[in-house]
């Protein structure tokens, strides 16, 4: 943009890489939390569908056992994947950014620099309350697409992380001034 903008060349190899990050796992109870939440949401959906079949399509009532069998058959692998997903989720906090990874098959690794965070929020849903888990939401400017949510944190960890991030952001601003 500007003519006298100095920018010492940096070799790509010298750049800190997110490839070698060591991810911290989520709280152990998150495994049970994700299984329970999958169970509840899928079960509600399936019960709704079964009720619809039972009351609307009268002639298919005799096959109800069969339908229930299919419903269970669908439910089991989903719960298994919910359990498995715990192992694939994790976060890594660096000095200037935070990385969150998730996904068993469709892997997603998102890195959000602290100087792009507008505000933070620690929240807890009703089910999370049961498992004593918290979610740290990091909001950026401009649409919700770039926001990052770190699930499955203990209260202590969520607070610590939030404090650390806001501290590093403030430090950065001070450096600039």
């Amino acid at each position: 943009m500007s003519m006298n903008f100095t920018n010492p060349q940096i070799s790509i190899d010298q750049l800190p890489s997110t490839a070698t990050l060591e991810y911290e796992p989520l709280e152990k109870s998150f495994e049970w939390y994700s299984m329970t939440s999958t169970l509840i949401s899928i079960l509600l959906l399936e019960i709704g569908l079964l009720c619809a079949i039972y009351f609307i399509a009268d002639e298919s009532r005799q096959y109800l056992i069969f339908f229930v069998f299919i419903a269970v058959l669908i439910l089991l692998p989903l719960i298994f994947f919910a359990k498995l997903s715990y192992k694939y989720e994790g976060y890594a906090v660096r000095q200037r950014d935070i990385t969150y990874k998730s996904g068993i098959f469709f892997k997603v690794i998102t890195t959000l620099p602290y100087n792009r965070i507008q505000h933070m929020e620690i929240s807890q849903g009703p089910l999370e309350k049961l498992f004593k888990l918290y979610t740290l939401s990091l909001f950026t400017a401009g649409g919700s697409g770039s926001d990052v949510q770190v699930h499955g944190l203990s209260q202590e960890k969520a607070n610590d992380m939030k404090a650390y991030i806001s501290e590093s952001t403030v430090k950065k601003v001070d450096e600039e001034k």
């Binding site: 469709f106 997603v108 690794i109 998102t110 890195t111 959000l112 400017a141 770039s146 990052v148």
Partner: peptide
């Protein structure tokens, strides 16, 4: 704002 790597 943020960088995301995705892989199937």
């Amino acid at each position: 704002n943020n960088v995301t790597l995705k892989s199937t």
